[in-house]
Design a protein around this nucleic acid. Sequence first.
DNA 1: CAGTGGTCTAGACCACGCA
DNA 2: GCGTGGTCTAGACCACTGC
Lengths: 243, 243
Amino acid sequence: MSTQTQRIKSALLKEISELQIDGSQKLPSERHLSERFGTTRVTLREALRLLEADGIIYRENRRGWFITPPRLHYDPSVHARISFMNYAQQQGFIPKSTLYQFKHIVADEFLAAVMNTVVGKPLYHICRIRYLDERPVLFENMMIRADLLKGLDNVDMTGSLHQKLRDDYGLIISRADFEMTVTTLPKEEATALNALEGAAALKFHRRYFNEDGTIFEFDIEFWRHDAITVAYEYNNNQPVRPF
Amino acid sequence: MSTQTQRIKSALLKEISELQIDGSQKLPSERHLSERFGTTRVTLREALRLLEADGIIYRENRRGWFITPPRLHYDPSVHARISFMNYAQQQGFIPKSTLYQFKHIVADEFLAAVMNTVVGKPLYHICRIRYLDERPVLFENMMIRADLLKGLDNVDMTGSLHQKLRDDYGLIISRADFEMTVTTLPKEEATALNALEGAAALKFHRRYFNEDGTIFEFDIEFWRHDAITVAYEYNNNQPVRPF
DNA sequence: CAGTGGTCTAGACCACGCA
DNA sequence: GCGTGGTCTAGACCACTGC
């Protein structure tokens, strides 16, 4: 005993595994599917939503429904050590980065508070889009202290930024912290990722501290929720006593 | 220029902030709201879904829509050090735990692989539900090696388990790892949390290693997606070199 | 038992992708 | 320019909540 939606979802799951064997990626049109299952588009779309929330399928705005490729394993502390391009490649993906926007801004109240500086502080605002196998999965906003890293506007923004910070500026990260929240893609981010406004997403806030304890960079990242599995290992030199 | 759904969402957002001032928690019925906004229930529910995905509101199965309380800040490594009850209290919540199920099981292929042991290994399977201010937010499955922790079935399961592991068994955690994925609540978990099957959730896998490197515990946790902000600090003794 | 949320139907129009 | 997905309407029935 189960609902129409659940039965369609199960049936689609079966079809999807068969499709994957065939190497096909795109699902048939909603009208074809709703006809095949003897239901309306509304009910069919409800089943598709469930699969989408599960991360089994995803949609590109007005293009249709696709089978979700395998997830990237993502260690949130990893940006402090390895570049996106490197760890994506290590896991067998073909990564790509594009520069979406480069702006000179000044800190507003929010940025000043979170970066522990004053309102009006000059910042670079760098937006990049990250792809895995040509699928856009990450919208990245970086806010970087312009006074500490002069001339950053003249370098290539599609490579590893942190490598440049080390090589060209001698910068060393002494600490980083982050926050992660499940939320939805805002309009601009959704458009950039070929997704719909309101699609589920993982939002990261990340701050980098240099050796002085100064926050030289604050990132806001939006990931497609189905693109990553966050993984982390907690390894203490001195064993941890429970409680 | 925006859609009907978006306009209703914005209007609801405004109403919600006013409701919050009044201390009210439950939204008016869908029929009342759809009438007030001059639309159908379908469209109204679409707007509610967006707010739900944002974590602004949530629903309890057949009970209606409620304003989401503040999130718990959750450090995924924290279970190795502090109990749920403690860190929830530290953040001003009134936590509660209930034992949902206690079973003796044996490792199947999946559990054997993930716990690095053999199929048929006897395990305790402990399910608990965690509440914040009477709201159920977490469904917790713990699989614990019964051969290493004999007699665990006779202790109170609603307190800190790890404290007991330390005090009664002298157990020390030397390492832990975890994985986190955005997915949906399965049927049983959804029912236990008063949620709907298919509601967005955060799933954690966590493993604890003792000093021998043996995995004595494997946890599967389902959190309501809007109940937590995952936070973590990455603090190296020796500074990290970018790239 | 009244009212609610969960589910479902059978249409419609429009903007956009794609060929 | 056809077909698609995105959006929206105006109903309906049922199971359950809460009184």
